[in-house]
């Protein structure tokens, strides 16, 4: 399914109407078309992660609308926003956010246990995601024993397992060396081929001037410039 994000007059304010009131995002307007790859650039603290978490319904905006597939996710009750995160969005976090003490396979399984699918289908989906992320050979390893690059590939497999149409990546290369960062750029290209809509928040220069990226957005002090 093709995805489209339309953001209108988006504000995120912390400690609203208090002394230490802080505008994390100010009047953001953004239109992301289906299958686009968008890189949001900005220094840390500029608000790009906040924007990403709002698009991913991890937190709720102070005002404004976020329309994904023409559905406003800004004020969705928890059950629906969770369903949205589960089925429509794949997250790739800076610190990978894998569950320690579980194997790669079980980590990738986690998003699938919410839907009542049979065992065969479950296995098929997990194995496919492991193949795409190129981590199938380590599927029975504990995630704590993996290297940084492998951890990220595991996280990518988990993001892909429910075949979401939207991929959100927050500083994906911050914990990787140069080599693995380049691999990630390749994976980004793969996403483009799979026709996923991808939003990457980063300050890494490795993403500069990539031919397959559709839009670069620069963000500073919570506003797009």
């Amino acid at each position: 399914m093709r995805s489209k994000i339309l953001i209108r007059n988006l504000y995120k304010i912390y400690n609203e109407k208090k002394e230490n009131e802080f505008f994390a995002l100010k009047n953001i307007n953004l239109n992301i078309k289906c299958g686009e790859i968008v890189i949001i650039k900005g220094i840390s603290g500029s608000g790009k992660s906040t924007l990403l978490s709002l698009i991913g319904a991890l937190s709720k905006p102070s005002s404004g609308d976020i329309l994904v597939n023409e559905q406003n996710i800004a004020k969705l009750p928890d059950i629906f926003s969770s369903q949205y995160r589960n089925e429509e969005v794949g997250f790739i976090f800076q610190s990978f956010n894998l569950v320690d003490g579980l194997s790669v396979y079980d980590n990738v399984k986690a998003p699938l246990v919410l839907s009542n699918i049979n065992q065969d289908e479950l296995k098929k989906k997990i194995n496919l995601a492991l193949e795409v992320a190129n981590i199938a050979h380590k599927s029975q390893q504990m995630v704590s024993n993996l290297s940084g690059g492998e951890k990220q590939r595991c996280a990518i497999a988990r993001a892909l397992v429910n075949s979401p149409s939207l991929i959100l990546a927050d500083e994906p290369t911050a914990n990787l060396d140069k080599n693995n960062s380049l691999i990630f750029v390749d994976i980004l290209k793969k996403f483009k081929q799979l026709n996923k809509t991808v939003v990457v928040a980063t300050h890494d220069t490795i993403f500069d001037n990539l031919a397959f990226v559709d839009t670069y957005v620069n963000i500073e002090d919570g506003a797009i410039i």
């Binding site: 609203e16 009750p77 928890d78």
Partner: peptide, 17 residues
């Protein structure tokens, strides 16, 4: 107040659960 977008309103929604 469902139309409100305050943290307090979201906390109330959580109490629902």
């Amino acid at each position: 107040d469902f139309s409100a977008t305050t943290t307090f309103q979201y906390a109330l929604e959580k109490r629902n659960y």
